[in-house]
Simulated assay, not measured.
Amino acid sequence: MTIYLDFNATTPVLPEVADLIYKVMVEEYGNAGSRTHEYGVAAKRAVEIARAQVANIAKADKTEVIFTSGATESNNIAILGLREFAEQSGKKHIITSKLEHKAVLEPIEHLEQQGFEVTYLNAEAGGQVDIAQLKAALRDDTVLVSIMHINNETGAIQPIREICQLMAGHEAYLHVDAAQSFGKYPFDLDNPRIDFISVSGHKLYAPKGVGALIMRRRGFIKPPLKPIYFGGGQEKGLRPGTLATPLIAGLGLACELASKNAEKWLAHVSELKTNFTAAVSELGGEVNGHNTSPYVINFSVPGINSEAAMVKLKGIIAVSNGSACTSSSYTPSHVLTAMGLDADRIAGAIRVSFGITTEELPVTEIAAALRTLL
């Protein structure tokens, strides 16, 4: 049986989460917007419980959470929702990095086409942004800094704490795409200097199609976001449409389980990664990225192409050679390119990502399969 090792692409739904989703779909199926009967009241209650469960991960207030279809939509609301404020205040400068997910880069590119100026931070060799470059890039007219927490391809952990310290006296809004870290890597996201946090359910053992955006107040002042589409006024007018109560309840429970088990989960995947890294080293492989998440390893073995490797590994492990969101593209990884890796190393890069349901790794079989390509 093929062992699934592509958790950065998506995670399985935990059984208890699936059970709750089923219950809310089949038994407590009211519309959270229906306030005239008990079915609607029960649905509303389920949504508010989930809102508090999500908020708790980042030590935010539950009123600062809105539900979305996933981190891509959350990113778009956080970035494009600032447009009107930026234009009215004359602050049309954005800072991001060349390492970001396309769900951040493409909305920013859209604003760039509309007259915004964008500074794209370079990556250091380990896959982190250069804090000194960020400091030099900050200007009086900077409206937004958008830096992810953990990279989806390499697992490189960005220096969010240092970024928060650097921006302590600046008015620019700070957005963190936390799709790969929320709930699983419980560090730094509770920093009150982070204005926006994007959350994805299906990276956290909840279903696909649900996520959240945390929007912290500054004192008592809400961030000046405007909706990017319209029709219904749900979620504080920022995300219209009937709430997907079963999925939201599932996301909430997944967050609660993560909050209770994060340390145990980290210990488990850390051991898996240590064992896998040792096997990679014996093959002469090179790890792409430094200071990376315990949940993922991106590596290249000199002389082995990633496409050929994945063919050899079929039936043993399920892995990828980049982001699932751009798997239809055969262009070199923009993340590894930004890190300055050479073409052969990029062409050989394989991403292996672990999860809490991963019991053991067939390292002997993996190594044997890869050795046939050397």
Rank of each mutant, 00 (worst) to 15 (best):
Leu341Ile: 11
Ile131Thr: 03
Pro223Trp: 01
Glu162Trp: 13
Lys59Gly: 10
Phe182Ile: 01
Tyr29Ile: 06
Asp61Tyr: 14
Pro223Ile: 02
Leu361Met: 09
Pro15Cys: 03
Leu266Glu: 10
Leu82Ile: 14
Leu336Gln: 07
Ser281Glu: 11
Val280Asn: 06
Arg351Gly: 05
Ala324Glu: 06
Ile131Val: 10
Ala367Trp: 01
Glu307His: 03
Cys325His: 14
Thr357Asp: 11
Phe354Pro: 01
Gln113Thr: 14
Ile108Val: 15
Gly250Glu: 03
Lys273Arg: 15
Ser34Tyr: 09
Ala103Arg: 02
Glu73Asp: 12
Thr274Glu: 15
Asp188Thr: 13
Ala347Asn: 12
Ser329Thr: 15
Ser270Leu: 00
Val335Asp: 13
Ile57Met: 07
Glu109Gln: 15
Ser328Gln: 14
Val54Ile: 11
Phe354Ser: 02
Gly348Ala: 05
Phe276Trp: 10
Ile66Leu: 15
Arg45Val: 07
Ala55Glu: 12
Val24Phe: 08
Ser181His: 08
Gly355Tyr: 01
Glu109Ala: 15
Gly250Pro: 04
Ile79Pro: 05
Gly201Asp: 07
Ser97Ala: 08
Asn152Trp: 11
Gly115Leu: 05
Ser300Lys: 09
Leu341Val: 10
Tyr22Glu: 10
Asn298Met: 07
His290Asn: 00
Thr36Tyr: 13
Phe276Gly: 07
Leu243Phe: 10
Asp140Trp: 10
Asp61Gly: 15
Ala278Ile: 08
Gly33Glu: 07
Gly252His: 08
Tyr185Cys: 06
His290Pro: 00
Lys273Asp: 11
